[in-house]
């Protein structure tokens, strides 16, 4: 690349460089750069309106960024520039899957069907783009069977096996969140982006979610998540990036970020000039 900044290390899965997003006169994201590493849970946090979901929408192709480069590196060393892919190709080709802040399930389809829809591209190929499948060839039948087995595996993981044949709209809120994650995982992504997965969950559900996310990471899928619930962020993330007013203010391990005065200021809402004061106090150890 011309800039020469694109030296992705071996364990980087997603590299966001100089990302800017403008809505009319509003600069929602301003020159934002960060890296997510393979096999890690990276959390993107920040106060309300900081631009976290905008970053997500840029990565997953729902917005075209005004400026910047989003590079994704798959495990076979192929690199994709996400901002140049068409919306559905980001999942199909680049292997990036996402969930939504306001859950988007196929509520009139059963839980199992939701997971089968997620395997659309695999099944489509197996059915010879419908033509061979219409003739009832065994190749498609086997693929359909394998798809159901994979769905069963994720149902088990998300603790939804008993509800497999119920409509997705009938599930409780927590179960819907888990189903959305299971559905995203059925596309076999390399990077799973979760937009506030713990929003609206009770503490017990939060704990099961943590276990589910750790399980996903341990199976080799990298995660990128937006979260407000600090107990979830600090508990499970390996790497935290903090965003405020569309700009990065901190980047590092959970412990590092937790003690960063800028982050504290952003979350407690102090004036800019007070940040220095807090910094001094921190050094003195009075906070």
């Amino acid at each position: 690349m011309a800039t020469g900044t694109n030296t992705m290390t071996k364990d980087t899965i997603l590299k966001v460089e100089h990302l800017s997003m403008k809505f009319g006169g509003l600069m929602a994201i301003n020159d934002f750069s960060f890296e997510a590493r393979r096999g890690e849970i990276t959390a993107l946090i920040g106060p309300n309106g900081a631009g976290k979901t905008t970053v997500f929408n840029c990565i997953t192709g729902f917005y075209k960024p005004t400026m910047g480069m989003l590079t994704l590196k798959r495990s076979n060393n192929k690199e994709f520039l996400l901002e140049r892919l068409r919306d559905f190709e980001i999942n199909k080709v680049a292997g990036v899957s996402r969930t939504f802040q306001n859950i988007r399930l196929f509520s009139g389809l059963t839980v199992l069907e939701n997971l089968l829809v997620a395997q659309h591209n695999v099944l489509m190929k197996a059915s010879g783009f419908t033509i061979l499948g219409l003739l009832g060839l065994p190749a498609y039948k086997n693929a359909a069977k394998a798809a159901i087995e994979k769905a069963e595996y994720w149902l088990e993981k998300a603790d939804l096996t008993d509800r497999a044949d119920d409509p997705a709209g009938d599930l409780s809120y927590g179960a819907q969140r888990r189903l959305e994650i299971a559905r995203a995982m059925c596309t076999e992504p390399e990077l799973l982006c979760l937009d506030e997965p713990a929003a609206g969950l009770n503490p017990k559900e939060s704990l099961t979610l943590n276990a589910l996310l750790r399980g996903i990471r341990d199976e080799g899928t990298s995660l990128l998540l937006i979260e407000h619930d600090m107990s979830v962020v600090m508990e499970i993330s390996d790497h935290v990036v903090v965003l405020e007013y569309g700009q990065k203010i901190s980047d590092g391990t959970p412990d590092h970020v937790k003690n960063d005065p800028k982050v504290i200021a952003a979350y407690l809402g102090v004036e800019d000039d007070e940040v220095e004061e807090i910094e001094e106090k921190l050094e003195e150890g009075t906070i």
Binding site: I90, N91, F100, S107, L109
Partner: peptide
Amino acid sequence: MPIGRAWEALREDEIACRSLGI
């Protein structure tokens, strides 16, 4: 078949369809 399920999924939620690579 996958195409029929994709049709119904499209009726339920088009944005979710795109996020699943359809």
